[in-house]
Every structure is written in C-alpha cells, then in structure tokens.
Design a protein around this nucleic acid. Sequence first.
DNA 1: TTAGTTTGTCTATCCAATAAACTAAGTTTT
DNA 2: AAAACTTAGTTTATTGGATAGACAAACTAA
Lengths: 388, 388
Amino acid sequence: MKTPTGDQALIKRMNTAIVLESVLRDAPLSRADISALTGLNKATVSSLVQDLIDSGLVREIGTGQSSGGRKPVLLEFVAESGYAVGVDLGVNYVRGVLTDLRGGVVLERTAQLPRTSPEEVFGILRPFIQALVDEAPESAFGVVGIGVGVPGLVDRGGSVLYAPNLGWRDVPLQDALSRAFGLPVLIDNEANVGAIGERQFGSGRGIGSMIYVSVGMGIGTGLILQKELYKGAAGFSGELGHLSIEANGPACRCGNRGCWELYASEQALLARAAEAGLGEGTLDSLLALAERGDARTRALFADIGESLGVGIANIVNVFNPEAVVIGNTMSRARPWLEEEMIRTTESRALNFHLRGIRLLFAELGDRSAVMGAAESAISAFFKRLRSA
Amino acid sequence: MKTPTGDQALIKRMNTAIVLESVLRDAPLSRADISALTGLNKATVSSLVQDLIDSGLVREIGTGQSSGGRKPVLLEFVAESGYAVGVDLGVNYVRGVLTDLRGGVVLERTAQLPRTSPEEVFGILRPFIQALVDEAPESAFGVVGIGVGVPGLVDRGGSVLYAPNLGWRDVPLQDALSRAFGLPVLIDNEANVGAIGERQFGSGRGIGSMIYVSVGMGIGTGLILQKELYKGAAGFSGELGHLSIEANGPACRCGNRGCWELYASEQALLARAAEAGLGEGTLDSLLALAERGDARTRALFADIGESLGVGIANIVNVFNPEAVVIGNTMSRARPWLEEEMIRTTESRALNFHLRGIRLLFAELGDRSAVMGAAESAISAFFKRLRSA
DNA sequence: TTAGTTTGTCTATCCAATAAACTAAGTTTT
DNA sequence: AAAACTTAGTTTATTGGATAGACAAACTAA
C-alpha cells in the first residue's frame, strides 16, 4: 500500500497549496481575502503566507483600499522567483522559451534543425537549451525544470519510443537532458504539450475537459479530461489521428486503414492540391491562393474542413468535452475551414453532446507546444513543492 | 474557492478510509498487518479499528497463527452491516439484486416489462424494488442505496434525458425513486454500470483503465479511466457506438453516418441474417445454427467480429487502455466472434498500444449491469462515510 | 523455566488549525 | 477633534489527531 497516509504535514502542504493557488489566481489580494476565499482561519493564512514569503514565492506589494478599517496588505505571487525552459522540437526546427513561473516569456529563440539523427539533434539542442538556462536571472529557485515537446510517442520514462518524422526509435531523451543539465526534465508528445499550452495560456483557459487537435503534417491529439492530461495505460494515448473514419479506406503507415489524418491533415491537403495541380506544394501557397479567391482552392479547404468535422464529431461523441481546440499549422487555414468544419460536426455529433460545446482554434498559434512544454516544467515544480 | 481545506478531521477520515480499504482488500488480517501495510502507526491503527468496530463495519474473528509471539487478532469486514439494491432496467425486463456491502448477492429477481411508458414502468418498478428492500436483513446501516442502470442517456441529476428504446424523454427517475423510498438513488447508463460491474466483480478486477463495450441491439460503452468511471462535461460520454467507422456509410438514427453499431451490434447481425435468410430472426436461432456448424452463419458472425475489431482498434488507439471487455448479449457469440475480432484489432491498432492489452469478454454475462448498479450504490455509501 | 518474539495498548509529546482576544490602523460620526 | 466604528492581521490558549516509545499480554522455542 503506497497510499500516502494522512498526517499534519500533509494538511500543511494541502493548505499551503490552497493559499498559493489563490494568490496565483486572484492576486493582488490580502491575507483577509485569502481567508474569506478559502475558508481557512485568518491565523492559519497568516502563518502559511509568512512561510511563502520566507521561501520567496510571495511578496507584499503595499496596501490596498479600505472601506472603513485598517488597510489590507496586498500580496502577489513572485513570478520571478524561478524560471522554466520550454522546448518545442519540430521536424526541422527547435523553438525554445525561457519563462518565469507564471509563464511570462522572458526570452524566445528558434533554430534550424538541418539533420535529425539523435546525436546531431542533441548536439544542437544542448547549447540551445544551455543558452536559455544561462540567460535566466538570479532567483530564489533558479531554473526549475525543462519541458520538451517532441513529434512522437513518448513513454513514462521520457524516452522517445518512436518518432517517424525524425527517424527516432528508443531515444532516452529525458535521461540525456537531465544528465546534461542536472535539472528536472519532462518529455512529452507535441500534441500533449500543445494541449497543456492552450489550456493554460490559450483558448482553453479555465476549461475542465478539452481535446486539443494538433493538425500538422499528421494529426495528433492531447486529451485534457477532468483538468488533467489523460495518458493511457502505457503513457501514450490519444492517437486520434489514427482513428479510422473509413473502415475500408486506404492503408495508413500505422497499419490501420482510413485513418483520420489521411483525410484531414496538412499532408492530405497537399496531396490533393498536387493531384489537382493547385499551388506550389506548400500550405503557404495554398493559403495565398485561397486568399486571392481561387474557388478550387477554397473548395479543397472546405473539403478538409469537412473531414476535420467528421473526426471532431467522433471526438465529441466519445468524450463529450467542453471544448475542442484546433491547433498547429492547419489552424492558419481557419477562415477557409471553419464554416464547413462546424457544419459537419454539428450535423454528425449527437445533439445532447453538442450542447454548450465550443469549437475553437489555438490562440497561441505555433507557440502552443513550446508554452505547454514550459508550463509542464512549471507545474512539475509546483507539484514537487507540494509533496516535499 | 470550494476546495475543502485540510484539518484534522480530514486526516482522520483519510486514514479511516485507508484502514477500511485494507480490511476490504486483504481480510482477514490483524491490526499489526494493517500497520505494516499502510505505514500508519500501530496505535493509530488500533484507534481507528476500534472506531470501525464500534460503527459495525469491522469485527474481530478470532486469532491467527503466530511465528513465535502473541497471536494476532484477525479482523474482517462485516459485509452484512448494510445492503444495497441494484436494478438493471432493460427494454422488456427488469432485473434486480439485493447485495451485501461486499457485493455478495442475497437475493435476485427478474420481472417482465410488457409496457414501457414511464408511468407503467414506475408502477412495476416500485413494488419490485420495495420487495428487495423489504427482504434486507436487519443491519447496522440498513439498505444504503439503490443503483439503477437504464438503456439511455442520463444526466448528472439522474434524469433519463433520452432512451429511444423505451420511448423516454426527460424522465426524472432518480427524483421519483428517491422520493418513493427515502434512500439514496443513483441512475446511470446501462453501459456505465456494466463497466462498473465487470471492473468490480468480473473480468476487469483490479484493472485501472478499461473500456467496457456493451454489444446488444445497439452498442454502448463505459469508460473506466484511471480507476474512475469517466463521464463527459455534461455527464454523458462514451457513445462509442456512434463513432463513425465509415464516413460515408449509411445514415444512423443519431444523425451521423456509418456508426459502429450499424456494423457490429446485434441489430446489425439480425439485419444481415434476415437478408441472407438465416435463422428465425433471433440471436438464439443464429447461435444454434452456428453451433450446428452452418458455414454461412459462422461467416456472418466472423464478419461481425471483424466489425467489432475495427471499432476496438479505434478504442485502443484512442485510450490505450489495459483491457477492453465485451459484454451484453453479443458476448454469448464469443466462440464465433473472438478469433476474427482479435485478428482485426491486432492488425489495425498501433503496435505500441497493443502491448500488454487484454481483449476480454464479460464474466458476469447478463448480470454485469445489475451488479454494477448495486456496486455504484455501495461505493456511493462508502464515499458518504468518507466525507462525513 | 527462561529467553526471545510478536501483538496490541498506553502515555507523553508534537504539531497544525482554530476561536477568541487583542493590537494596529484606518474611516465615519458627532 | 474626539469618540465610535471597521477592518486587517497577530497572539494565545485550546483542540484533536498522529506518533514514538514504553509497556503489558500472549505466545513459541529450547
């Protein structure tokens, strides 16, 4: 039985977390506010706040307005008490951010990735991350961790089991990075960190259950269920891109037939554009064509929108989420996709499940993943705080 | 902020729950065993166990073996300290059980349901349940609750929003029953309670993430994720029967096209049997034919197995569960379905997701739902104990 | 017998939360 | 401006759990 048993330390940790959370959410606020908000006794709040001030996570920022009594001392979270690094490892680029503990971006860098072998990538990644770490200002906690999103399957130990577009198999990335930097490292799938990013900083703020659909060359998905990222039994789930929507459709490289991503991804778009002789084989050229009003291109985007809708209807029926967020490169085609996507979803999903659902596009654009990677490092830091 | 704050009462509730759980799981065992198992101090365990004995949930049952010291006093859970009623409301039947708090069946009843209007069903259900309640032996907690599984969509308030096969819309069943009996009542979808039943008492014992697929006239599903029944934002999720597996397939009554249940349900089987002139239009007749070795019938079952496999592959890719459990009437056709179902699933699902997965059939047969209904009443009782 | 072992209880102590009293620092009323 | 009131935050004594360690009880083995 590894269930943690209850003792006083647990209570203190819980209540400290509650206090910190209310500072994070509602700052600036006073000790009295926290007491009223949380139901904790004023004395308890005072004591816990003092601990947080001592540790450097919270500070007093002067007094607020009074309505006939002593003025409250306002508190705020010290976002600069620590920093996190987020990395989005793409197929031909690396993007990195250095953020404070509230997710405020201090620094952002991008680099090309001309070769993708694990060794070569690591050779680029290491100085790339080191530069971000080095730029972090002095702070109470320093750099609290590194989060990395990768385009592939990642196991619970942070090994990249399979990343077809990088040509990786069984690359122990977490091991390598945490050894190199001596910092906590979290590796996760690009769609999973994208989901975290959009939920924390983007269109999914405050939403409890949300499915993030990363539509790039393939389709990946991140599932936020009951406010938590859902991972399957083995740590990888949500391969909704390989949900078959045509049982007898064309074979997919995954072994299944008629996978959703064969119909609704950027790759699908480009393949069909090539067949029809549209554009120059890039998303950009097609977007430009659509912008100029080319009817065939617009019809093609509408088709992709419809295919997206077919899959989204499935998602809605399966998960009954509060929101579905479309991200990654294809979200740039929103104007030409959205209408048909929504129409198809609404005509296909169960009525009861459509009530109150929101079909959104990523707010963070191509930064969903990198921000989510940073956020996962931040939240891991808070989790460590809570349990120690 | 409604987060419950931590105080000593919380500690005690937590630790009491931990102790009770270890008694439930590992009885018979001694106080010393519990202390070793849970990490709680011997004194703490003694005190909590005494409380549980006083409340009637635990009792001493004599001494055990010693290996050179004082003999341990063995404890066990008093299953007969309370009783629960489980009801499986079908389209033309009602099945009910009275169980003790461990889920041991004390009494089981079935009745026909000739008419399905809410009033008529309630007229039958009320005395049916009353009889079960009346038969419960005297006990410390009495009948702790009533769980009901229904073939339809149920909202969080226990209202049946939509049950096409009963012809129900917006029937406040929980209200009606809890008013009639003055007991806690839980209403849930048949597949959800079936999932609970199989997980607690059937083939899913001890499994953390499991998808229960109820294949009857339609296909319903219950999702056990991270040891909990997953319900969507609005309380209904897991309509995997209406996952489209042929985007351009035939229209389904749900509004979508090519839904899984159009290919893999009992209804699909019977429709195709009728087309082919096989059997007398019942599952029983087809099973008999297959038993006798009729090749066309067997091929038909194999086809259904393949269609089941297509959907299961999707499930596996989406959820990466530890197990998929096939239940309800179609599980009776296991001998004629299983091979093709497994073959199709394995050829279509992602390799990584197949590792260690188990494709099982319901152990409880047609009692998955009724047992799960009782279990949901029992676990609600324990939950109440824990929070008060 | 005697020594050693294991179970379970008892006792003193610790610690976090709390209520209530109190101090601090304001605003409003007269 | 003094008195009365308000609100913020701290101090103090109390409460109620968990705990370590001492201890008693009950056993085995030699």
